[in-house]
Design a protein around this nucleic acid. Structure first.
Lengths: 205, 205
DNA sequence: TCATTATGACCGACTAGTCGGTCATTTATA
DNA sequence: TATAAATGACCGACTAGTCGGTCATAATGA
């Protein structure tokens, strides 16, 4: 039997196999034996690549995170218009999550891990960073739009970015749960409303 | 030892004790022995009140859900203005979640349970219903506002309600993770932006 | 080139412990 | 005493992580 020489490639393969297991069965219900078997190696070998189960799962989380990021990047195009850039950002984020919807349960398990005392700091810290970076990205786009005169001054940029990121994240969650609506359409429609306002009273300034 | 006569009261007590355990340690890390001990009974008695661990956890979920609902109701006041009613609805929802923030991890565990094959239908179904009812409630308020002329026609009511509910839910999640911002302020500011619009171009119609 | 040695990937049986759930027994009440 | 409630010892199934050992390949050197 050919011996594997590329450790990184093998690590990747394990992460892929593990992500499928974790997504399908959940963290606790996934045994290291099952992951090893899915990756086509033995349990002992698994421990040559990952210190323990938590490390393996954290690796899966990082891998998934990057997968989504890459998908999102690929979906973002060039846009002159600031408003179009914000739309594209939201579209890309949702699209990227939909691209890998079958792995979405991994995120749910990460949240659960962030709630457990043992793994809390590691996972909650990572989540905090992840959301902060998305928020900062969107906040930057909003400020650009303000500079271009497409979005008015006087709005709370942080709050707007935070709420929108939250809404988009939640959208993926609900779509995973219920496929009876079109998340992209919801998001576009909602962003349109946000830009134009849903109220009938005359807007100030 | 005084005999407990009120089975329902005892059930309540168990649910309270169990919710604290599940919130603190997570579902899998919480043993039935630990719950029994926290409730001041023996493990065997626990099984007189709940068929198995999953049932106990589902009971905790329902209990928590109701707790939040009651909190939210208590926070909703009477408002003539449709816009104020929507603001109050969001305020009440967030406030209610903050009232019981220490139990929030239970929600995370419910999501994780919804991702596991064994418990998926039961928990994902319950979540679906829960969000659908919140969405319907908010959609109703928006339609009322339209009827009153406070919100313009032509917006996608379902999408708006869904996105807002998602944003609010996510807000609680992030506040649980990171206490460095004021969720109520974010939400009010965001709703203000949504009513008035953040764009500078003249709104149609 | 070929024999010797070193490397480390790979394996899977094994340890040591956990925990959900049961049930024969005990305890308390009416 | 009869009945209902409460108990906790016990069981069986399961699994994270370990470790001694194997062997294909790479490195070395004569």
């Amino acid at each position: 039997m050919a011996r594997i020489v590329d450790r990184d490639a093998k690590r990747q393969k394990i992460l892929e196999a593990a992500s499928a297991c974790f997504a399908k069965e959940g963290y606790d219900a996934t045994s290291m034996e099952a992951v090893a078997s899915a990756a086509g190696i033995s349990k002992g070998s698994l421990y040559d690549y990952f210190k323990n189960k938590e490390d393996l799962f954290f690796g899966v989380f990082e891998w998934f995170q990057q997968l989504v990021m890459v998908s999102a990047m690929a979906r973002m195009g060039e846009h002159q218009d600031a408003r179009a850039r914000i739309m594209a950002f939201a579209d890309a984020a949702i699209g990227a999550l939909l691209d890998h919807l079958e792995l979405y349960p991994v995120s749910l398990e990460v949240w659960a891990a962030a709630a457990k005392p043992g793994t809390r700091p590691r996972f909650s810290g990572a989540m905090k960073n992840l959301y902060a970076s998305y928020r900062a990205e969107l906040a930057g786009l909003i400020q650009d739009a303000q500079a271009e005169g497409a979005i008015r001054d006087g709005i709370d940029v942080e709050a707007t970015a935070g709420m929108l990121i939250g809404a988009v994240d939640n959208l993926a969650l609900h779509y995973w749960l219920d496929r009876s609506f079109d998340p992209q359409a919801w998001c576009r429609s909602f962003l349109g409303s946000l830009f134009d306002g849903i109220g009938t009273e005359t807007r100030k300034a």
